[in-house]
Design a protein around this nucleic acid. Structure first.
Lengths: 346, 346
DNA sequence: GATTGCAATGATAGCGCAACCATTGGCGCT
DNA sequence: AGCGCCAATGGTTGCGCTATCATTGCAATC
């Protein structure tokens, strides 16, 4: 390599440049940045001055390489556009940021193959820990994660055999609980509307189905699903088509999330179907709108922000070397009954 | 440093390990990874085999350090929980991902000081480009960005003096246009409900105000603002309190975004105020719910996904060395009139 | 048949930083 | 006084990779 040109401010300043200017050794500059209490007040000020004067910004690549610490937590989620992950990410960012970690985020578009590619990308950044979604990684992906020898949290759902740590709740139980409540509210012919149909949605459906089967109320004809991504518009469409195909032989509908449920609710208004009197309606995740819409929408609250906080906290604690309390955390859920299932008659 | 222990798989595999196993030089392995066409078929296969066998994952820190290319685009947004940025991020991620760039994302919580801190963090990762939000960076922050000598896109709004590139639309014009439409629909006493009141919301308000003032319709008493973050719940509260404080002397309300507007709409339903007959209502950003709610909500559509795509595309083109068409792109907006301002009488 | 050109591969030398160990000097203790 | 100790600072080395410049061998050219 050619000797570097030494023109004026030709290149970004390095540790050595700062050291020269402050008339100290490079390692002292490094200490000023990373372990300021190990440096005398006087030197620290002198060095800080040189840093400011040169506009020095440490090169994290070099630091990572030399110290084997990147300060990065890799996070993989299946969808950036699904609002559910916003809240989770907020929790992760808040905790990670407060502990000085950077978050490198990737979107797998609900594809295990893309997830594998993305995890490889993340691992090449030498993250100190990983937070990933669910448990449907490819074998190769799981192997990579194990070889990486960093703490891993799988979040969003409870797993029977997590790779390492796990925080989530049982989507099966949640689906079951919601179904029970619908029935308890007096509805009998309960339909299901589901989109995307990823693993977690399937589990909700399974829970729902079990609750109904136990009471001999389950009817496949009342279940409508699609691999398309959820949206309010889709919820409306699916609702209308379910009502048509069943010729109204449905007295309640459980939507696999609140987008669909809101769409169904708005559509039912246009169809002049009275909710909750003629039809019960409920969703999942409890978005803010569900509280405020008229009638307010029954839903299953999922502690998404807390889940993100929990995931990041587990990571940070392990990285700090603190004793680990729990490897698996059930963050729970909460059925929130509102007007949309409050059948007055019956 | 001590000689590294050579136990079995004691450490993660390196380029050299792969090279030894494949019986080639290290640089050849590097080529197999980065410029496969420069290596003969035979060697390429042999090396690939070794890579797979060892589960080798390149160390991006070392690569960045040696090549001065990180493959990272730094992105700074003011809020992770504001859904508006979801769409923008989706666009950025789609384009960046397709071009092989990683995205390092930070959240500044609408604070210029935190933004400065976060930009410093981003720059320490040697990003090849930066995408940041708006133009209210601190002086120090702007200086850092200039010294970094990487392409920078400021997005979300049009700036008179962008640091480098700029993509957005005029919030002033958008506010003005919406106000014009409200008036054209026959409303006269138009209120404004705004939350967060960041620069862009202020510009919307300024545009709104100008349109009303030009017609002698502006009345400060009808403007309600708060620094709190927007939400549906807040929209309901602010609407109710505006109606109370003005004793109903308002015949339309422009909310600075759709969260507030939906909250206001739901609240108006509970207050038995007929929209659009007794009251016109409109929002901003055009969330999906606005299309489907009853009555459907007039709003200003903002091309958020496209804006993300545009920002990332500009970056990628510059990085590719392609001739740059435009440094400043006005991505536009579109007033979408719906039922909530469709006054039947008058 | 000698020359040129190019494709394929290798050797060497850093990139900027921090781990490690060494050195210095001052302090408290017996 | 002599010893050990610790705080403050520095010198050297190497983290894992790629830019750069060889080197090799072979085909195409006249």
């Amino acid at each position: 390599m050619r000797p570097r040109k030494r023109g004026p401010a030709n290149k970004k300043a390095t540790l050595v440049d700062v050291a020269e200017r402050a008339n100290v050794s490079a390692i002292t500059v490094s200490r000023v940045i990373n372990q300021p209490d190990k440096v005398s007040e006087e030197l620290r000020l002198r060095v800080q001055q040189a840093i400011d004067a040169l506009g020095y910004i440490p090169n994290q690549s070099a630091s990572s390489l030399a110290s084997a610490r990147s300060g990065v937590i890799g996070v993989s989620i299946p969808s950036l556009s699904n609002v559910v992950f916003n809240d989770v990410l907020s929790g992760i960012y808040d905790v990670a940021g407060a502990s000085g970690y950077k978050v490198l985020l990737v979107d797998t578009h609900y594809s295990p193959l893309e997830e594998e590619r993305m995890v490889r990308t993340l691992l090449s950044q030498s993250p100190e820990a990983m937070i990933i979604t669910g448990g449907e990684q490819t074998d190769a992906c799981q192997r990579m994660l194990k070889n990486a020898r960093v703490p891993v949290v799988q979040m969003m759902e409870l797993l029977s055999e997590p790779l390492d740590m796990n925080v989530g709740f049982s989507h099966h139980q949640a689906g079951y609980a919601m179904a029970e409540q619908i029935i308890a509210a007096g509805y009998q012919r309960v339909g299901f509307v589901g989109a995307r149909m990823d693993k977690r949605v399937q589990q909700r459906l399974a829970g729902f189905r079990q609750a109904l089967e136990e009471r001999n109320l389950f009817d496949t004809a009342l279940v409508a699903t699609t691999p398309k991504p959820s949206s309010i518009g889709l919820g409306g469409e699916m609702f209308r088509s379910l009502m048509a195909s069943t010729q109204g032989a449905v007295d309640a509908v459980f939507c696999c999330n609140d987008d669909l449920a809101l769409g169904a609710l708005f559509e039912s208004q246009r169809m002049n179907i009275k909710v909750p009197e003629e039809l019960g309606l409920c969703g999942f995740n409890d978005f803010e709108a569900s509280t405020f819409v008229n009638p307010s929408l029954t839903s299953v609250y999922t502690p998404r922000y807390d889940m993100g906080v929990q995931a990041a906290t587990m990571i940070v604690n392990v990285l700090k070397g603190e004793p680990q309390s729990e490897k698996i955390v059930d963050i729970g859920f909460e059925v929130r009954l509102r007007q949309s299932t409050r059948r007055t008659a019956n």
